[in-house]
């Protein structure tokens, strides 16, 4: 009985994390897909990428977010989308941290492409960190359950 409840909670957490992360990615992609030029400016402001990669990132990155967000919500191709999601979130986190350390006063460009608001870098960092935690949890979940051949039941130990 106890085992059953644990399994249920575990399943609930797993699907919850998957759907939350999916929504986050889709929500993040929406404004950037509509305004790639504004997004390119924000990427430029971060002063991390070389000029040649700025427009390419602005054009393709939002579609990557939309794609993995959709895959996460639908629940297919999870190893691939969870893997990419982890990489993206960790890169975003590093970029935010790097700029905080440099004291660069720029817009986050996380969920919108508007530049007017005063940047709240600590808040962005915390928010991004919580997404990283969810993503890492999913990574462990997906990769362990898949590799131990327990696709349909999400037991932690075989």
């Amino acid at each position: 009985m106890k085992e059953e409840i644990r399994k249920k909670i575990s399943m609930f957490l797993y699907h919850g994390a998957r759907i939350i992360l999916g929504i986050v990615f889709i929500y993040a992609s929406y404004d950037k897909i509509l305004h790639p030029a504004a997004f390119a400016k924000i990427i430029y402001n971060y002063q991390i990428l070389p000029d040649e990669l700025i427009n390419l990132s602005a054009i393709f990155l939002p579609w990557l977010e939309l794609t993995i967000g959709s895959l996460l919500i639908i629940g297919i191709w999870l190893p691939g989308s969870v893997f990419i999601g982890n990489i993206l979130l960790i890169i975003f986190f590093c970029a935010l941290m790097y700029n905080k350390a440099r004291g660069l006063d720029i817009s986050c460009g996380c969920f919108s492409t508007s530049q007017g608001e005063a940047p709240e870098s600590t808040l962005y960092l915390l928010r991004d960190f919580s997404f990283v935690v969810i993503a890492v949890y999913l990574f462990i979940k997906v990769f362990i359950s898949e590799s131990s051949g327990l696709k349909s039941s999400f037991r932690i130990t075989p």
Binding site: D51, E52, I59, T67, I84
Partner: peptide, 30 residues
Amino acid sequence: QVLFIAMIVLVAGFFSNKLRSDKMPFVEDW
């Protein structure tokens, strides 16, 4: 799967940029 996702993204990004009125060059001297 990563490869497939990359392909989807490349096609989507390429065509969406091609179709929009304010399309951007892939490489620009900032």
